[in-house]
């Protein structure tokens, strides 16, 4: 029903099947998910549904430019790249159809300003990665200079207080506690953008107190350590199967 409505809206029902429409919506949703917070994401999907779903691929760039405003402008190429990859790759694993979420959002039934208002979730793969990255980065900073690492944590603690526009207070408080105590699982869900901005915050603090060279090195080593761990996990899984 959802797909029929959207296709009719575009007045080009013959051009695209219901299944294809649903798959495309899933593809767009999956592709944009890492880049946008919930409300911006749902707005973007609606825009795509209403204006771009049946247009030629060459106009995708215009869609991406329309949704990537403000600080997202620099991500235009990344978003487009991801979007094209998901749309064109029929084999790519996709998220569930977001249409129910979209309708609820339009009806005002989704509290998008605070993703933390939902019940605490078990850590997703991304959340695990996020926690590992933060933990490893903090450890490496500690190993380099304990006092400077302490200053970086304080810097991040103060800066997080300014994040009220993009995070709920409970998320901010949880992150502040977590970073000062550096342990345990985070109970709230954080979007990829939120995680990215927190990591960037720690990097900025490291730049200020360790210098950009060391900050870059530690940041690079942190990523490498997580990649390494992932590779080890893969090997373990493979050996278990055998």
């Amino acid at each position: 029903m959802a797909a029929i409505m959207s296709v009719e809206t575009n007045g080009d029902a013959s051009a695209i099947s219901l299944e294809e429409m649903t798959r495309m919506r899933q593809a767009v949703y999956t592709a944009l998910l890492p880049f946008f917070e919930t409300n911006a994401l749902l707005e973007a999907i609606w825009l795509w549904e209403e204006e771009y779903a049946t247009v030629d691929d060459v106009l995708i760039r215009r869609f991406v430019q329309e949704v990537c405003t403000g600080e997202m402008t620099i991500m235009v190429n990344s978003v487009q790249h991801n979007l094209m990859a998901h749309i064109n790759d029929g084999e790519a694993p996709l998220e569930d159809d977001p249409y129910r979420l979209m309708v609820a959002y339009r009806a005002g039934h989704v509290d998008t300003s605070s993703p933390a208002s939902t019940a605490p979730e078990s850590p997703t793969e991304n959340m695990q990665l996020f926690q590992t990255l933060l933990t490893n980065m903090n450890r490496m900073l500690e190993a380099e200079n304990r006092y400077s690492a302490y200053l970086v944590r304080n810097y991040a603690d103060e800066a997080l207080a300014e994040y009220r526009g993009s995070m709920s207070i409970s998320q901010i408080n949880e992150l502040r506690n977590w970073m000062q105590n550096n342990g345990g699982d985070l109970r709230h869900h954080y979007s990829a953008k939120q995680m990215s901005s927190v990591l960037h915050l720690v990097y900025t603090g490291a730049c200020a107190y360790f210098g950009p060279k060391l900050a870059n090195d530690i940041h690079g080593m942190t990523i490498k350590s997580v990649e390494g761990a992932g590779a080890v996990d893969d090997i373990m899984a493979e050996s278990a199967e055998e």
Binding site: Y155, T204, A206, C207, A208, Y209, F210, P212, A215
Partner: peptide, 9 residues
């Protein structure tokens, strides 16, 4: 200045 060139302290 570039980020971190001159630090807060």
């Amino acid at each position: 200045p570039r980020m971190g060139r001159f630090s807060n302290d």
